[in-house]
Write a protein that binds this DNA or RNA. Sequence first.
RNA 1: GGAGGGGUGGGUGAGUGGUUAAAGCCACCAGACUGUAAAUCUGGCGUCCGGAAGGACUUCGCAGGUUCGAAUCCUGCCCCCUCCA
Length: 399
Amino acid sequence: MTQPSFSFHLRHQDGNARAGQFATPHGAVATPAFMPVATQATIKTLTPDEVVALGAQVVLGNAYHLYLRPGVSTVHQLGGLHRFMGWNRPILTDSGGFQAFSMGALRQVDDDHIRFRSHIDGSEHRFTPELAILNQQGLGADIIMCLDQCIAYGADRAAVEQAMARTHRWAQACYAAHYLSPATAYAATAPKQALFGIVQGGTFPDLRRQSAEYISSLPLPGYAIGGLAVGESKAQMYATTALVTDRLPADKPRYLMGVGSPEDLVEGVAQGVDLFDCALPTRVARNGALFTKYGRVNIANRRFTQQATPLEEDCDCYACRNFSAAYLRHLFRAREVLGLRLASLHNLRFILRLMADLRQAILANRFAQFRSSFHDAYQPTDETIRRQQKERWLAARGG
RNA sequence: GGAGGGGUGGGUGAGUGGUUAAAGCCACCAGACUGUAAAUCUGGCGUCCGGAAGGACUUCGCAGGUUCGAAUCCUGCCCCCUCCA
């Protein structure tokens, strides 16, 4: 399917890391890029102007949440998602497949649909590939996603294979619905939307290979890697990412879904990923965890009580340019809403600046140096250290 | 002066003979969060040893007493609150 408005230009490659440009009807996205998450048509606590000022080029909305509330037709009648949320740049919507994974007891997955109960009022709904496409056409995002089945880490091979097979069938059905039978209620928006496919396969190398090959055989303008960052080790996640990007076409954007943390973004870029989205920076910000170049800190900790200087002296975010770490700590302890906003501004600025720095490093052919100096400074969290120790211990024990 | 009520771990507040180192909430101290059911969740919170399991010791205004055993019962003292005068 030829969609000239969605051209991807690979500007430069340094090792496997890529710097490119992805065109959409609402403007171009310089990659590698991070998409802040606006599940319910808002980056929680921030205005679109603020999000633009942070350096975001594209944001992610969620078709499942917006389908339940306020409803796809409502958004459509109000002029589409861009106008509804006051964001006139590119938007990507997720299909709702991930909610079938994350909402546990409320859903049931069958071969041709996902059935779920609304977390809002308990009412029953179902998504088929065709409905997932229809919903996303109604919302009108620039990039829409195939319905897929994300499966938990630790599931046995048969279950992972089954989920992968469904994902493949659904991808074919989504492709057909979006590109081959456009006579839907929202036919006018469809040509202005790029549909991305999603690779699944858990952490089984052969399944991932198989999935990457199948999904990339569909003539789509971009390909995503799903089902990662769901509990597997970072080593597995990075290895799986590398294995998949190796088999995706070089001339199309690659999108690693649901990633990530600063260190994961650097590693994703190193494996040749172009697009990322993640709730982590903003969610964690609202819970008081802030990124610094030396690692993550909890701003509510006692050690910040008297810190008159900003959390990061050389950070150019609004919070660090105007307030002391002690003030941020105070806002969190006092449960003031400004604390949530300042923390979100800081974390998103940290991530978006990181992406810009990665892009510059690639263009200057110094990605490897950037990567290693980043990791030298950025210390993993206590929990990550504990996990790595456990993995080493299990590996040693297993021989 | 009279009548009544009450003093519990940082705060509040359960507990009225053993299952109580003492509920719950708050505060405090940490940790987690990856295609957002999240301004949420988890752990710790008398002292000492221990990674933990666990163990030792000291606690319920103060001092005595009854009892195998007391935050809980008795006596005295100190302090606080309410109402009446």
